[in-house]
Simulated scan of single mutants.
Amino acid sequence: MSIQNTINHPIPQIIAPTLPIVGSKERFGVRRIYCVGRNYLAHIREMKEGDERDPPFFFQKPSDAVVVDGLIPYPTITDDFQYEFELTVAIGRRAVDVPRGEALDYVFGYAAGLDMTRRDRQRECNKKGLPWEQGKAFDASAPCGPIHPVSLVGHISQGSLVLRVNGEIRQNSRLEKMIWNVPEIISELSKQYELFPGDLIYTGTPEGVGAVHRGDALVGEIEGLEPLVAKIV
């Protein structure tokens, strides 16, 4: 008997969330969630909170912030609950200090994702020079659609990104407008962290972010991927 098998766990071990994989009965187990901040110039300008000359940066959400069923509970301690729709990259191989020219070799697939934000809490943190956890890393703040393997859809590097709320277009941009593209994101991130299979990277949102309320229906479409359908409950 191994030592591991003799260890008692008084608290049940948490099982990582999993996402469906298009064309497969297997599921993608989520290890970590990395997010890119300020990766579209027009979004930086609409928020008026950052210097557009600065490069994008990274922050994290807990893996159990993933929402699989599309039901997003309206969170506590906020009066300004906002959507940020973006391309999500699923990592399939261990990656350390990856050159940009090789970065796509580490991608398992792509999905549509929402970086849900307590905007009032985030702004308070900004003013006080505090970390963003309260505004970004809360429960159910990372809805994600099914993972589309590269073997089925190829690499998603261009195309439209559109989010509708109750049928009205709120965000409408193109992936080509990202300041850092996917290879650059993976290369930069792998210099800061050791990436592993199961990691998700939310690549940043374009302009048009805004508030949602209980009962609102969201449909996010990225060219080449299945739409992400969600509801605020």
Rank of each mutant, 00 (worst) to 15 (best):
S173G: 15
R53E: 13
D64C: 12
S151N: 02
G167C: 08
G101P: 06
V68M: 13
Y40M: 07
T88A: 15
L163W: 00
E176A: 14
S160M: 02
P62H: 10
Q60L: 15
Q60S: 13
G154N: 08
L130S: 10
Y40R: 03
T117Q: 05
R93P: 04
F108T: 07
L161V: 15
N172G: 03
C144P: 02
L71I: 15
D105R: 13
N181M: 02
D105L: 07
A90R: 14
T117K: 01
V162D: 00
E168P: 12
S160T: 15
G135R: 09
D79L: 03
S173Y: 11
G109R: 11
V107K: 04
D97A: 12
P131Q: 03
P149L: 08
F138W: 13
V153Y: 06
P131Y: 00
V66W: 07
A42I: 00
I169K: 12
K177T: 10
E176R: 14
R121M: 12
Q122W: 06
A42T: 10
Q82T: 15
E49P: 00
E176C: 08
W180Q: 02
D79H: 12
I72Y: 05
S141D: 04
P149S: 11
F108K: 09
N172Q: 15
R123H: 10
V68H: 03
A111R: 07
S160E: 11
V165M: 01
E124M: 12
G154I: 09
L114K: 02
Q122R: 05
P131K: 02
N126E: 09
A111Q: 05
Q171R: 11
L114S: 09
G113Y: 04
V68K: 13
D54T: 15
V67T: 14
F108W: 11
D139A: 15
G109H: 11
G135Q: 06
R119C: 06
E46W: 04
A90I: 13
A142G: 10
V182M: 09
R93H: 15
L161W: 10
G70D: 02
L104R: 01
F108G: 12
P56L: 08
G129Y: 03
D54H: 14
L71W: 13
Q158R: 15
L130G: 01
D79C: 04
D97W: 02
R123N: 14
A65K: 09
I91C: 03
R93W: 12
R164F: 03
I147Y: 10
Q171C: 08
D120V: 08
P73S: 04
S173H: 13
Y110M: 10
D97F: 08
I72K: 02
P62M: 05
M47K: 09
E46Q: 01
I147S: 07
A140E: 11
D79T: 13
I156A: 07
D80F: 06
R100H: 06
